[in-house]
Nucleic acid binder design. Structure first.
Length: 780
DNA sequence: ATAGGGTTAG
């Protein structure tokens, strides 16, 4: 390095020009580099800090290592043979187990159930799943004659079930059966609860009845909830009605509400309403909880008018809507994108003397983040603090996610540290935020490292975290990375979801391996996994990108045949393909189809259609589409304006373009730099240098970051048309903002000076070139 | 028994 700086070689290597003095663009590049850790020694990058903290293992993003498995250590030591041989280790382990089981039996004799509970929980947690057979053997061989043994067996089943080691629980249960021991109702309840998504629940219930075990206050609720979860709505209703008919138990509100909740969450409002009417006919009135369940059902369906109707109805019945009612209402408004209305309800609730809790605030915070209303986020946070509400895991996760999405990773880190200091520990949701922002920045090495660290430190990693990182690989076109992580998922025994598969299909599309992508679709179908609208839309879009509209239409027909409903994105892709083929009328027909089937076209849909018309230079249609957007209450996007301004300039209507731009600025519309520079270029090309200079000045003063390319585009066009003085003004503006011309641009300007015989300017420029070191020493 | 947070396609 030292050698090279002292003795520059006399040849043109390296072939690039030396780096210019600090300029706007290089400063931006430095910032970008900083963000991307290129300069790792000096950067004080917040993401790096997160990672460093995480690396230390006790950083705020990682749970303390309290999940280490005690037995692993002793087994490892035994295998190494350093301290004792394997046989000794095994014996010690078994001794320890026996000692603990003995403790349990002794405690059982004294009825100290809570203590048995904690001993067993600790032990089963350490042993993990698959340990039931060895425990059964120990119990059978060593504790047969203890009078308290059936309590221990029952609790063993119970704890396995509660720790979600369901196979072990069922194993112990079957052993109990063979030893003529009876499980308790709370164990049966727990088993039913953990098997609520399967039809085994019914088998367990039958066993309870066959054995004459008395049900608990939860048994029927668990059963009804389970039947609803398995979409056996009619069975759930019949069971409830039977139960009432038998008068075996007084049908209490809780059981009825459980059924209502199951029906509403299974999307069956009709059944729920019918049931509630039947109940009212029998003189049983709905309580606030029942109303809330129904109201939430309507919210889930997006039917806010029905929500309001029910709130009125409950008020007429003399029931007072509670905080949960209002939270559902606020959530509904926020989901519709109307945070203002959500905030209005909040004011109303407070005026009625009801204090919002952290759940209601979380809903509002999440919605405000999604709208980017950071000022109001901080206002609400201030309110939360003033009231003295404590932030919980969900609230913190919303903050972390929100800040990450806005790119404010420092803030996210601060929140993370804050929550850890308050003993609120991050979970999978929280980690997802960090992982997505790392992936979004293209920092896949870091994301992967972070994910692997979470997995190896025994923390909860779920399929969504893997999906996030697989998508990160897909987005940068690293299919190998994506596939390798996919294999990892399978090795870990996690089940990939359709999102995983869609993401992998996207990865193949991204690197233009469309045959492979479609083959992958066929493979997942063969494995009994149903593709979704996203699967098809991803592939269809890739075919459009490859210029293969026919294949796109083939897939579109295929999804229709399979009754997979296309959405606004699917239709937009179809329109894009048709536009590419020049079938513009057909594209408009699709837009009409969308309206008929009740799918609202959005800005991107219109932009695609507009682009189609711009490509054939049909200004009238382009503007008609713009008007239609406004008629549909859709705010055009920067892309819309870029398209319109570009088409005006392309057709030589430069003044028109400038007037349009001014009218937009008057309306307070934010435009991208492209809209301005398009007009500047057209003005330069059309011989309107004065206007170009004025507009360019406006660009700079509006705070846009201008690049050498923007200047070159103007100067090249001006020089070509002999506007040398005006080109010089651009050059001066350029130097003023700290950008130096490159070799190519210098050549253009010098040639123009020579052509016009402006030698004085030529010399001045050459002097500047030498002074600033724009050109390499050997050609000066 | 009722309310809040994370992943994919234009």
């Amino acid at each position: 390095m030292l050698f090279r700086s002292k003795f520059r070689p006399f040849c043109r290597f390296p072939p690039q020009l030396p780096a210019p003095k600090p300029t706007i663009s290089s400063a931006a590049a430095a910032e970008a580099a900083d963000e991307l850790f290129i300069d790792s020694s000096t950067s004080k990058n917040p993401v790096r800090e997160i990672l460093t903290l995480a690396k230390r293992g006790h950083g705020p993003l990682f749970l303390p290592p309290n999940r280490t498995r005690v037995d692993r250590q002793s087994r490892g030591a035994g295998k190494d043979g350093n301290f004792m041989d394997w046989e000794v280790a095994r014996t010690r382990l078994e001794d320890a187990r026996l000692a603990r089981l003995e403790t349990c039996h002794a405690l059982a004799r004294e009825g100290r159930l809570k203590e048995i509970n904690s001993v067993l929980q600790q032990m089963l947690h350490e042993e993990g799943s698959g340990s039931a057979p060895s425990f059964c053997e120990l119990l059978q061989n060593n504790f047969r004659d203890w009078d308290s043994c059936s309590i221990v067996w029952d609790m063993l089943t119970n704890i396995y079930s509660r720790l979600e080691m369901i196979h072990d629980a069922l194993y112990v249960l079957s052993k109990m059966d063979s030893l003529n021991m009876q499980a308790s109702i709370s164990t049966y309840d727990s088993l039913m609860y953990n098997l609520r998504h399967t039809d085994m629940v019914w088998d367990i219930y039958k066993e309870i009845r066959a054995r004459g075990v008395t049900h608990s206050e939860y048994t029927y609720d668990i059963l009804i909830d389970s039947l609803c979860k398995q979409q056996r709505l009619q069975d759930a209703i019949s069971f409830f009605q039977d139960m009432q008919g038998r008068k075996e138990v007084k049908s209490c509100n809780v059981t009825f509400n459980t059924l209502m909740s199951g029906l509403c969450n299974a999307g069956s409002m009709e059944e729920a309403l019918k049931l509630s009417e039947d109940m009212e006919k029998d003189g049983i009135l709905l309580d606030v909880v029942a109303y809330n369940i129904l109201i939430n059902g309507y919210r889930l369906l997006g039917l806010m008018s029905e929500v309001s109707k029910l709130i009125n109805m409950m008020t007429l019945q003399g029931l007072r809507p509670d905080l949960i009612t209002y939270t559902i209402l606020i959530t509904g408004h926020c989901e519709k994108g109307d945070v203002e209305e959500g905030l209005r309800v909040r004011r109303e609730v407070i005026a009625r003397g009801i204090q919002l809790n952290i759940v209601a605030y979380s809903v509002l915070l999440n919605a405000l983040f999604k709208k980017g209303k950071i000022g109001e986020v901080h206002q609400l946070l201030g309110e939360i603090e003033a009231i003295g509400l404590h932030m919980d895991l969900v609230a913190y996760s919303i903050l972390i996610h929100g800040y990450c999405k806005l790119g404010e990773i420092e803030r996210a880190l601060q929140v993370c540290q804050m929550m850890c200091s308050k003993q609120v520990m991050p979970n999978s949701f929280t980690h997802g935020a960090t992982l997505s922002s790392l992936c979004k920045k293209g920092m896949l090495v870091e994301a992967r490292w972070y994910l692997d660290n979470l997995a190896s430190s025994g923390q909860m990693v779920d399929i969504i975290l893997y999906n996030i990182v697989i998508d990160g690989y897909a987005k940068i076109g690293d299919v190998d990375g994506a596939l390798e992580l996919y294999e990892q998922i399978l090795k870990l025994g996690l089940s990939p979801t359709i999102v995983t598969y869609n993401t992998l299909i996207f990865a193949f599309c991204k690197i233009e391996k469309l045959t492979v992508a479609e083959h992958f679709l066929r493979q997942i179908e063969l494995n009994g996994i149903n593709p979704t609208v996203v699967t098809y839309t991803t592939l269809m879009n890739a075919f459009v990108g490859a210029g293969n509209t026919d294949s796109m239409l083939r897939l579109f027909n295929e999804m229709i045949e399979k009754a997979i409903m296309p959405n606004v994105i699917t239709y937009s892709v179809v329109m894009k393909g048709l536009c590419k083929q020049g079938r513009l009328q057909k594209a408009i027909d699709i837009l009409k189809d969308m309206h008929i089937s009740g799918i609202c076209a959005d800005q991107i849909t219109y932009n695609i259609l507009m682009q189609g018309f711009c490509e054939v230079q049909n200004i009238e249609m382009a503007f008609r589409i713009h008007d239609e957007m406004l008629q549909h209450n859709l705010m055009p996007t920067p892309v819309t304006y870029n398209l319109l301004i570009n088409i005006l300039c392309l057709k030589g209507k430069v003044d028109c373009a400038e007037k349009f731009l001014d009218s937009l600025l008057d309306k307070g519309v934010r435009l991208r730099k492209f809209a301005y520079t398009t007009i500047v270029k057209a003005q330069c090309a059309k011989g309107m240098p004065g206007k170009a200079i004025m507009l360019f000045d406006k660009i700079i003063r509006s705070g846009f970051e201008v690049s050498i390319k923007d200047f070159s585009a103007a100067i090249n066009r001006l020089c070509k048309r002999n506007f040398v003085n005006e080109a010089t003004i651009f050059l001066k503006m350029m130097l003023y903002v700290g950008i130096y011309p490159d070799e190519e641009l210098c050549t253009v300007i010098c040639s123009a000076f020579i052509k016009k015989n402006e030698l004085q300017s030529l010399f001045a420029l050459q002097a500047m070139i030498v002074k600033s070191g724009i050109l390499a020493p050997d050609i000066q």
